[in-house]
């Protein structure tokens, strides 16, 4: 039947859907990864102020 034929439009929409899905999953993984790194390094713990180390020339 004609309904089983895939139109070019469907291919394009599938491409968009997959692209958005991959982007969202990557975004979640990124936020999770960043949070884990920051937490394990203790970036969010309160620390006494430290002297800045100059990195200039």
């Amino acid at each position: 039947m004609g309904l089983s034929n895939e139109h070019e439009m469907h291919r394009r929409r599938r491409s968009r859907n997959i692209g958005v899905a991959v982007t969202l999953v990557a975004f979640v993984a990124l936020v999770l990864g960043l949070t884990m790194v920051k937490v394990t390094r203790g970036d969010f713990e309160k620390r006494p102020p430290q002297a800045e180390v100059s990195n200039g020339n």
Binding site: M9, R12, R13, S15, R16, G19
Partner: peptide, 15 residues
């Protein structure tokens, strides 16, 4: 109307 969808973007177009 298939003509109306001919230029529909795929993900690569946004990229």
């Amino acid at each position: 109307d298939s003509q109306a969808y001919e230029n529909e973007a795929q993900f690569g177009d946004y990229f």
